[in-house]
Design a protein around this nucleic acid. Sequence first.
DNA 1: TCATTGCAGTTTGTATACAGTGTGCGAATT
DNA 2: AATTCGCACACTGTATACAAACTGCAATGA
Lengths: 223, 223
Amino acid sequence: MATYKTRAQFVADDLRGRILGGEFKGGTQLRQDALARDYDVSRIPVREALLTLESEGLVEFHAHRGAFTTELSVAKIRELFDLRVLLETYVLRHAINGLTEADLKKAGDILRKYDQALNSGGDIDNWSEYNFAFHQALYAPAELPETLSLISQLNTKSDRYIRMQLVYTQEIEKAEQEHHGLLELARQGDADKACELLKTHIQEACEGIVALLEERAKQSETS
Amino acid sequence: MATYKTRAQFVADDLRGRILGGEFKGGTQLRQDALARDYDVSRIPVREALLTLESEGLVEFHAHRGAFTTELSVAKIRELFDLRVLLETYVLRHAINGLTEADLKKAGDILRKYDQALNSGGDIDNWSEYNFAFHQALYAPAELPETLSLISQLNTKSDRYIRMQLVYTQEIEKAEQEHHGLLELARQGDADKACELLKTHIQEACEGIVALLEERAKQSETS
DNA sequence: TCATTGCAGTTTGTATACAGTGTGCGAATT
DNA sequence: AATTCGCACACTGTATACAAACTGCAATGA
């Protein structure tokens, strides 16, 4: 969370993007030496970056065998999304109370920017950022930084799968509509309905991912 | 979470204990060189340990100025305890459904061991471990590993303050009684009452800590 | 007197170097 | 032919070494 950029942090940020972007499938070994050559740094900042990613749950260390990208089971994905429902409805409820015009405008601006990017054929990397930015903007007025940090953690862990779903299904438009709905309910101050919508928003994404994963599992069985 | 022990992990574990034990007050600088000499290792594992502790929220890095122990504001403490209520009642509810005799016995055993340690004048370090072990035993049957991990995070962040409260007030006996009550309600399968008790158990601890901190703030003002 | 600049000392962040441990392949044995 | 042993290689984990950056103090100037 430090505001400055060490080499280690640069590597961590870039590597996170590569993992979330799907460049490394689950369980692949990340060799420190190779990564060090990739980024033209020594292995020390690479190790530190890997440790950071370990704490984020994207990577696991094994004794004297180094770091491997993690892969989530369907059960864990379900658990993560259930947690997201629990925590995000919790903050949304808190946020809606103290929502100002400025907050609504900010969230609306992000949403509009995102609409534009979408219409002009924006790609997935941007989508993740916009999606996260919108949710954060909506949650920020709750002034619960620790909670937001937890939510951010959960998102990081599941982001790979969300992107996967977006690539293979056409869920983006639907998510977009739900975002507009969410913003409208927030504007009206209807916390119950907003939370209900948020809940189904998250749960449907989860089910989409699970369906996709199980279909894949079947395919690799028969092949 | 790797199961093996590198020097870095040893340092991290020990240092965590020292921070939580109150050896370093909030905001004190942790010099890598000094720690390296302390543990008779080079600065590399020390740095890695500090990075681990940073991800746990016990330490903060500042640009070219190294690591400092963090200090929580009253608002953040309240937020953390509110989160604990939310997450712990959530898992307790799930756990109570699938609770077996073996689970109850395990939790009971821990509680008994803890009673013994308490009667023979056990100290605070042990208390933290026992307390955590008891809660984990009670929550484990929920089979929600990610959730338990989040709860564990929250506990780590607030553990310093819990210990402080226990040192300065005589809350241990009360907590102990509540633990027994919790176990009994779990045995009866009364999720509602158990969650209610857990909620007040956590909230009262929070209020105790906040009262203590505010008293201290007043004292340092007048002095 | 107070602010500003420059320098020395200290500490971090990283590169290089090295020792220990796991891995995989081939030889030897049954 | 299959299994076990051993050796060479590869990679990790850590120590040492070095450069950049920050801190604090002293000297200078207004």
